[in-house]
Simulated scan of single mutants.
Amino acid sequence: MLTSNGYVLSSGRLGRLSEVPQRERGDREALRVRLERDGYLFLRGLLDPVEVMAFRLYYFERTGVADAHGVPQVVDPGELRRVLFGEVVPGAQYQAFCAQPALRSWYEWFLGGEAFLHRRKIIRHIAPGEAGIGTATQAHYDLVYLREGTDQVLSAWIPLGDCPVSLGGLTYLEGSHHRVLREEAAGTLKRPAASITADLPGLAEEYDSRWLVADYAAGDVVIHTAHTVHAALDNVSSSMRLSTDIRYQLASTSIDPRWQSHWHDQDGL
């Protein structure tokens, strides 16, 4: 049984995320067609798992939220915030991980030009048993938060370690970007954040669609458009879920200035 914010996802509204097949990995035009069609690119093994696991260990050692095996530990909330927002988020290790050649070079190849990494980079740890509205990332599409720049921002969701569905990884609403694009163009959205909700089952019914899930592995990356609706599942395992989501775009396109400061949970975005 899969849940998100305590809501049970119906088996009839679930599907599997489609991996980019190996024959398309080096075909930029095929990938662009796939991204336009699906709203995401599920790239298995884009990153070196050794580097992913090294950063995972660094994060757990610095914050103390889990041991080397991902087993949750008790930490002082004040000290955690000091380390997370004062050391880890603005630190050289996090920057190097997010700008590593395997990632930046892929973006530059795919975009066809110099890639710009937004400074506001988000890293999340989710402990087992955290459920109820407000715990897992609610359904949304990224343009809601990035309206002062180009809408051609491409987000990368990166599981920092193996992440089976029980650990609470990201889930995507199949084909949702097509409806979002139509509504954005027509100006028919009730308000800028109208699509945000914790009720994933209800949203799947409204869109007549399925939530797509996957068992992710260290090294996997999912690239998605700014119009693709996504959310997170609840962590029903016994380990800490760790992930990061970052955003790249062409450096020559309009950049949202609000995203050029380091992420903080009180930054209002």
Score class of each variant (00 low, 15 high):
A115L: 04
F116S: 04
H118E: 11
I122N: 04
I122L: 14
R124E: 01
H125Q: 12
A127H: 13
A127T: 07
G132S: 08
I133E: 14
I133R: 12
G134W: 13
Q138I: 14
Q138K: 08
Q138Y: 11
A139P: 04
A139T: 11
H140T: 04
H140V: 06
Y141N: 05
Y141H: 14
D142N: 03
D142K: 00
V144H: 05
Y145W: 08
L146D: 02
R147T: 14
G149Y: 00
G149W: 03
T150C: 08
T150K: 01
V153W: 02
V153M: 08
L154W: 12
G161V: 03
S166H: 07
L167G: 02
G168W: 00
L173C: 10
L173Y: 13
G175K: 02
G175N: 03
G175S: 10
S176M: 07
S176P: 03
H177A: 06
H178E: 15
R179S: 12
V180R: 01
R182F: 05
E183K: 02
G187N: 05
G187R: 06
T188V: 15
L189T: 06
R191P: 00
A193E: 15
S195I: 07
I196K: 07
A198F: 14
D199P: 01
D199W: 06
L200P: 13
L200V: 15
L203V: 13
A204T: 08
Y207G: 02
R210Y: 08
R210K: 14
W211A: 06
L212F: 12
V213D: 03
A214Y: 11
D215C: 11
D215A: 10
D215G: 05
Y216T: 02
A217R: 13
G219F: 03
D220S: 09
D220Y: 06
V222W: 03
V222G: 04
V222E: 03
I223N: 00
T225A: 10
T225V: 05
T225D: 04
T225W: 01
A226K: 01
T228Y: 03
T228E: 12
V229L: 15
H230F: 10
H230R: 11
H230D: 11
A232D: 04
L233G: 04
L233Q: 02
